[in-house]
Nucleic acid binder design. Structure first.
Lengths: 380, 380
DNA sequence: TCCTGATCTTAAAACGATTCAATCGACCTC
DNA sequence: GAGGTCGATTGAATCGTTTTAAGATCAGGA
């Protein structure tokens, strides 16, 4: 491990069938290393100062130094000032490991999300961080990437670190694992998912309401021949959104709902379904499409707007997505969508977590937020 | 903090001018809370077991228990088995705070990235995690979101946690801050950026080469009237890519480079520039476009492929982007792009970091990787 | 003067894992 | 059987902070 030579490391594997040509032929990822002659000032490492050093410099006891930092009201202003000066002078920074050891647990909250690239989760994380910071807690973020082993690795890490608590959008069934954490004094709150047996608190969004909201909007715009494009239906979120769509359609006697299943929530799958619509006789087409998420919606939009396709959005077909990702507003025709209150979910989850961490006898709670409709050009 | 009432929390602020309609009128984000009657099994919290408990149960000393976990070769098989049984039986999990306190520093590496939504950084993080795990280290991820205060908050956290080391794609000029960390024994390695005065190791990608690679490919495809769309040029990455483009064009006496500046690397800006091209007389149009990144390229593509526009890609205009984001391959016309070896950067950075953590006298190194060309339909 | 509080400060005992010098056996050799 | 060697095991010291009971100092009232 100590002899990393330039170019010895293997390159990233190629992920698809595209032709790849490295910049300098012969090496997948060649590298160029430069070493500066300057070396670090020898032994600048003057052993990080401890409370003991601060106490000595300020001429007080270590207990007083601790009080200055944690309960300033217990110490006279004169002494506090003297200690503060010493702290600044030595550049003292508290050793959190020692603090945690004494405290019995960390003042950090662990958050594991399914996909850190998804703006929903980053916004959620932001909300959690903000709320945690207000009470002096930090949040560290783990990305399970929908892989059980990665999820487990993070939970292990959080356990040895004796985290204050854990927020998680679970991938598999991990209630057993979470139960064990709770026995150790580490509470957990589920985000974006509900706990099957309600044994853990959760904060989630009502996807059924979201589906009803989307289709209700299409109906309110005068559309009647609705198509739902999404799948696979095994995904809870997808089937919930479809259920919502059904309930909305049921309120209009003359409205119909066509379900067009696809095999994944991707742009490509959406485009395929969209191309299919383009190929139909105009009278056979729906006059509105509800896509299970924004990626699918963008695929559909691409197909409809393609050169040669004679379908106008929203003229002939109104289109609405779900999730309100950044790209939704940057689409050729800005996309209407359903937005989830991501940051609010994060904030609320932290709030509940902190309460449970403070009082482990609290009964679990299930909080369900309602999504919001974002109207843009694609449904006007 | 102990009395969170449903609905008391304020909703997320609205980010753009879109019309927003909440699902249930009157509340921006209404919520629905359910409380289960069941309460936690009283006092299941049987105080987490410590080495002492394990030692007692196994009938050995604490030192031996520690040896079983950290230097199994120093302990007889019989005793090791006995201790392991005790560990399993008690569900013992090491308290990392105590371990760290004794060790003097954490076995965790901190990583701060500019934008956690950017696949480049998540791939980089993945590479870093994998490499770190191989040596028994963990990586925790912080998202500075290009905000100096968030960046500073993470560095503070890493300092009190006495991290083993820090990887960072810096936002502002933080060499002073990093120098302080280094004095405390926490080395830092810059990723995706080079250190101005070479006082820190860095692992980055050669954007000039990337620009040359992109345009070289266009020229090799027989294109001669190249346009570069990107901006603002103050961004180092943008101007480097443009410089690379210039050097490539200079190798062909009959090739020309038109620079079309835009005010941001967004889909919208790209579409505006693209619409401009569509408006030109066909003979005034370039026959190839190099967009400063994939978002811009997608905007350009949208404009060119729009209903009514009579421009074919790659027929009339070849198009290449930069970064190879997921969307690039899912575009209407799959987009050629320049890929950076993200995971490799992460791996290498960890490798260097671990070396420097082991030997603080090592001179800083600058490693520069070469990007790769990914050819798809848009340039064929 | 002495006592009573009030206020501020101290010293020592935790917290839990690691480490290292010391000890203990067991076995071998002379 | 004494001395030596080697491996396995022990136990006390250690890391840096927080906490707490006890101590010190001072002011004011009896």
């Amino acid at each position: 491990m100590h002899s990393m030579a330039c170019g010895r490391l293997s390159s990233t594997p190629i992920l698809n069938r595209s032709k790849i040509v490295p910049a300098s032929a012969g090496m997948m990822a060649s590298c160029n290393e430069r070493r500066t002659g300057a070396r670090q000032e020898a032994a600048g490492n003057h052993m990080a100062a401890s409370v003991k050093d601060v106490a000595a410099l300020a001429g007080v006891s270590v207990g007083t130094v601790s009080n200055v930092m944690n309960r300033p009201e217990k110490v006279s202003i004169a002494v506090a000032a003297r200690v503060q000066t010493a702290i600044d002078q030595l550049g003292f920074v508290r050793n959190d490991a020692a603090r945690q050891l004494r405290a019995g647990r960390s003042s950090t909250i662990g958050l594991v999300v399914l996909d850190v690239r998804n703006p929903f989760f980053t916004d959620l994380a932001r909300g959690a961080e903000d709320r945690a910071a207000a009470d002096g807690f930090s949040v560290i973020l783990g990305n399970s990437d929908e892989k059980a082993d990665r999820e487990a690795t993070y939970l292990d890490l959080f356990e040895v670190q004796r985290m204050h608590g854990v927020l998680i959008s679970p991938f598999g069934d991990i209630t057993e694992r979470l139960r064990r954490l709770r026995e150790r004094g580490i509470p957990a709150v589920l985000v974006d998912r509900t706990s099957a047996d309600a044994s853990f608190s959760s904060v989630s969004v009502d996807d059924i309401a979201g589906g009803a909201l989307a289709v209700g909007h299409l109906l309110a715009q005068g559309r009647r021949r609705i198509a739902f494009i999404g799948g696979p239906l095994e995904i809870q979120q997808v089937s919930d959104r479809l259920d919502g769509a059904r309930t909305a359609v049921a309120t209009h006697p003359d409205a119909t709902l066509e379900v067009i299943p696809i095999d994944g929530l991707t742009v490509i799958a959406g485009r395929t379904a969209g191309t299919d619509l383009v190929g139909r006789a105009p009278t056979d087409r729906p006059d509105a499409v509800f896509a299970a998420n924004d990626l699918v919606a963008m695929g559909v939009l691409q197909a409809l707007m393609m050169q040669g396709a004679d379908v106008r959005v929203p003229g002939q077909i109104a289109l609405i997505g779900y999730d309100d990702i950044d790209f939704a507003s940057a689409a050729v025709v800005p996309l209407s969508s359903i937005r989830q209150p991501s940051a609010l979910i994060g904030r609320t989850a932290v709030e509940i977590l902190l309460e449970e961490a403070a009082d482990s006898t609290l009964a679990p709670r299930q909080v369900v937020f309602q999504p919001e409709l974002v109207v843009r050009e694609s449904t006007l």
